[in-house]
């Protein structure tokens, strides 16, 4: 907490990680500023040092190499939505980024890296990354690490803290034969999401042969619920699957959020409603 914060703008990731390792907890990394600045403006956050990472070239750019799509952490939502490589290889992510809240200004300034590291339960990017089995690259003074997004969420030792930098997101391309969808329950256009679900399905002879589903905005972090829905595999879609999904989901969200947009009981129910909607929408894409 400082009345007179300092500002640092390192030019390389090396400089940046060295700098961060020497700073106290009052330092913050700033990229698009969409997460930090509202807190600063409200007086809830008074950082001692702002470390501006916008000059770090390693964090910029979208590339497709070795059958992997690499998205720099500084990539803004607008570019995730419009970039041809993202649209071609991971259309689910490109589509989900359209649902990021806050309107055009946030889409133009907010970065995918900032969206991930905030680990906000209601945000729109992580649910898709989970079922795409995305990985992230993390740089610190100790070196460079590559971890899966699910490990990043679940393992606190990977917590980024204020000493590490998320540099890029690495995703394997989606097969063209897959159906995919992202469904978001948003009660009013100005409100945050109340539940969302991303789904990727593959079918053969109309039967589901693989299924990945995640649910966000219901529990403190988005959850990959694919393994709980394994009994759906082998089935052709029919309304009885609704009940299976509802029943499976009912036990998955004991820690459901309760906020002013909705209580935990409602949110828990919305998990299955949105999961069903995303699976159905994904199946429809195959048709």
């Amino acid at each position: 907490m400082s009345l007179y914060p300092q500002f640092a703008k390192p030019n390389t990731t090396e400089q940046a990680s060295q700098l961060l390792s020497g700073l106290s907890t009052g330092a913050v990394i700033i990229a698009g500023g969409q997460e930090i600045m509202p807190s600063v403006n409200y007086g809830h956050l008074m950082p001692s040092v702002y470390v501006d990472i916008n000059s770090l070239k390693d964090l910029v750019g979208i590339n497709f190499e070795n059958n992997e799509l690499s998205i720099g952490a500084l990539t803004v939502h607008r570019d995730i939505q419009n970039n041809e490589l993202v649209k071609e290889h991971v259309p689910l992510l490109s589509y989900a980024a359209q649902w990021v809240g806050g309107g055009w200004q946030v889409h133009n300034r907010g970065t995918i890296g900032g969206n991930i590291v905030s680990m906000h339960p209601l945000y729109d990017i992580i649910p898709s990354l989970l079922i795409l089995d995305a990985e992230v690259e993390i740089i610190s003074a100790a070196g460079t690490n590559r971890v899966s997004i699910s490990d990043l969420l679940n393992d606190t030792s990977h917590g980024l803290g204020s000493k590490s930098i998320l540099s890029k997101i690495i995703i394997k391309p989606m097969s063209k034969s897959l159906g995919w969808a992202y469904e978001k329950l948003k009660i009013t256009s100005g409100g945050y999401g109340s539940a969302n679900s991303a789904a990727i399905v593959e079918t053969k002879n109309s039967k589901i042969i693989s299924l990945r589903v995640s649910v966000g905005a219901v529990s403190p972090l988005p959850v990959d619920i694919s393994s709980s829905l394994s009994s759906l595999i082998g089935n052709e879609w029919n309304d009885s699957l609704n009940d299976i999904i509802t029943s499976k989901c009912s036990s998955l969200f004991d820690d459901a959020l309760s906020d002013q947009q909705g209580d935990d009981q409602w949110r828990r129910s919305m998990a299955s409603v949105m999961a069903i909607r995303s699976i159905k929408a994904a199946l429809k894409k195959i048709e």
């Binding site: 409200y42 009013t188 256009s189 100005g190």
Partner: peptide, 16 residues
Amino acid sequence: QLTNNFMDYVMPRAHD
């Protein structure tokens, strides 16, 4: 008071 910003006090927007 728990309602202290527009995240919690949800006003309609043009789309609504």
